[in-house]
């Protein structure tokens, strides 16, 4: 019964939206807005076939590599900067500067510096996705409770043990928030990195469809992007529920007090 209900909550709104869309496009024959049935069959034609291996898989691979790098860099950098007052004060203005640069403008620069290749595209993803992870990790490390830190010290927990036993778990609620933001930024940058001077990938294909007025195909690409977003969010919440189980429990107790 409970399972049924949660399925209902997941499915109800999308179903209603599709029904609405279906109703509104019932009589029309618009060139720009396809009907649901049309879109589904186009989706199948376009994406389930060779294009999946040629465009979708490479895009997703670059996204995955970019995200993993951004998360690793963000957490490592955040640990270093967050743990050291000197580093923090040195890096604060610089971080603000780099964070303010919209990553898409880096695409032409990286094209010149690195060339038009996978490395460039991955770097574009990293350049945008690293910030929320980095800044949230710094915040988390800085906010470690003083009593908890003294407790760890008094039990001789220092050096790398301190990082694994205290700093990382204590900062995990923060960097998980950062990772969640990084996922959506990464997806956007994956598309953007492929829109310039590229010859394959999801972003490239969608732009290609748009330029050749293959409107339904273009829509199907957008749907695919949305589905990838949903998939990423699903993976995230699966991981988060496990990593932060303690945190949600703690918050619940604090709120009920």
């Amino acid at each position: 019964m409970r399972a049924l209900r949660s399925v209902f909550y997941v499915v109800a709104l999308p179903a209603a939206l599709v029904a609405l869309w279906w109703l509104l496009t019932l009589g029309s024959d618009s060139f720009w807005v396809p009907r649901p049935g049309e879109l589904v069959s186009t989706f199948r034609e376009v994406w389930i076939g060779p294009r999946f291996m040629d465009d979708v898989v490479p895009s997703l691979t670059r996204l995955a590599v970019g995200l993993v790098l951004a998360i690793a860099l963000g957490i490592l950098g955040g640990l270093a900067i967050g743990s050291s007052r000197v580093l923090r004060r040195l890096s604060e203005p610089v971080l603000e500067f780099f964070r303010a640069i919209p990553p898409p403008v880096l695409v032409p620069i990286l094209m010149v510096l690195v060339g038009v290749n996978d490395t460039m595209k991955v770097l574009v993803i990293v350049s945008g996705a690293v910030w929320p992870v980095l800044l949230n990790t710094i915040e988390g490390v800085r906010g470690i409770d003083e009593v908890l830190s003294d407790t760890a010290k008094s039990y001789g927990i220092h050096g790398t043990s301190r990082i694994t036993m205290l700093t990382l778990p204590a900062a995990s609620p923060n960097f998980m928030t950062g990772i969640r933001q990084a996922l959506s930024i990464g997806l956007i940058l994956m598309v953007i990195s492929e829109m310039f001077a590229s010859s394959s990938g999801l972003g490239f294909t969608i732009v290609q469809f748009q330029r050749s007025f293959a409107v339904t195909e273009m829509w199907s690409g957008i749907v695919l992007l949305g589905l990838i977003g949903v998939l990423l969010a699903g993976i995230y919440s699966f991981v988060e529920r496990r990593v932060l189980r303690w945190y949600h429990g703690l918050k619940e107790v604090e709120q009920s007090e």
């Binding site: 409770d145 009593v147 908890l148 407790t151 205290l166 778990p169 995990s172 303690w246 945190y247 703690l250």
Partner: peptide, 9 residues
Amino acid sequence: EYGRSLFPW
């Protein structure tokens, strides 16, 4: 501060 000296995770 027992609440702050135990590792909540």
